[in-house]
Amino acid sequence: MSWCWEYVPDEQTVAAGAPPEFIAEVEKKADELVRAAEALHLHGPAFQGADEGARHAFVAGGFFVYMVTARSELVSIWQITPDPVP
């Protein structure tokens, strides 16, 4: 296995209507989260603890909700929320 991130259930559902610049920021931060999780969980599939649950990450233009699942070596992005347009 190899660490990665993905939209759950899929990109079309999670990112529908979000500005492309904001989506790019979300994906850049998701790449950082994958690198951090990989460093923290060197033997991800052997992880025996409980998952940390949902977390929020703030980026330029809004925030997103994600979860790290070490056993699957996966960062899943469940929801993205762009800042409201004034």
Rank of each mutant, 00 (worst) to 15 (best):
A50S: 13
E21L: 15
H41C: 07
V68D: 05
E38F: 06
A15K: 02
F63I: 01
A36I: 07
I80S: 08
G62L: 02
F47P: 13
V14R: 01
G44P: 06
Y66L: 05
I23L: 07
T13I: 03
V14I: 06
L74I: 05
K28N: 13
T81W: 07
S72G: 03
W5E: 11
I23P: 01
A18D: 05
P19T: 02
G17P: 01
A60Y: 06
P82T: 04
E6W: 00
V59Q: 10
L74N: 03
A50D: 15
V65K: 02
T13M: 01
L33G: 12
Q12F: 12
I23M: 02
A24F: 04
R55H: 05
H41S: 08
A46V: 04
D83Y: 02
D10I: 01
M1N: 08
F58L: 04
Q48V: 10
T81G: 03
R55N: 05
T81P: 00
A50L: 07
F63T: 01
A57S: 09
Y66T: 06
T13V: 04
A30I: 11
F64G: 08
E52G: 15
P9G: 05
T69N: 10
A18K: 09
F22P: 11
T69A: 14
V65P: 00
K29F: 00
Q79I: 07
H56N: 05
V65C: 02
P19D: 13
Q48N: 10
F22M: 08
R35C: 09
S76I: 03
Q79P: 00
V85K: 14
P84S: 10
R35V: 13
I77W: 06
D31V: 15
T69E: 12
G44A: 10
A57W: 02
I80P: 13
L42N: 00
W3I: 12
P82S: 08
G62T: 03
V75Y: 06
F64D: 07
T13C: 01
A46I: 04
C4A: 14
D51C: 04
R55S: 11
S72H: 11
A54E: 05
V8C: 12
Q79N: 08
R71Q: 13
G49L: 12
Q79C: 09
M67D: 14
S76A: 15
G44E: 02
A36R: 14
F64P: 05
A30G: 11
G17T: 04
V75Q: 05
L33R: 14
I80D: 07
P86H: 09
E38A: 15
E27P: 04
H43C: 08
D10T: 01
G53S: 03
A30Y: 12
A50I: 03
V26K: 04
I23R: 01
V59K: 09
E73P: 00
H43S: 09
I23V: 13
T81H: 08
E52V: 11
S2R: 12
G44L: 05
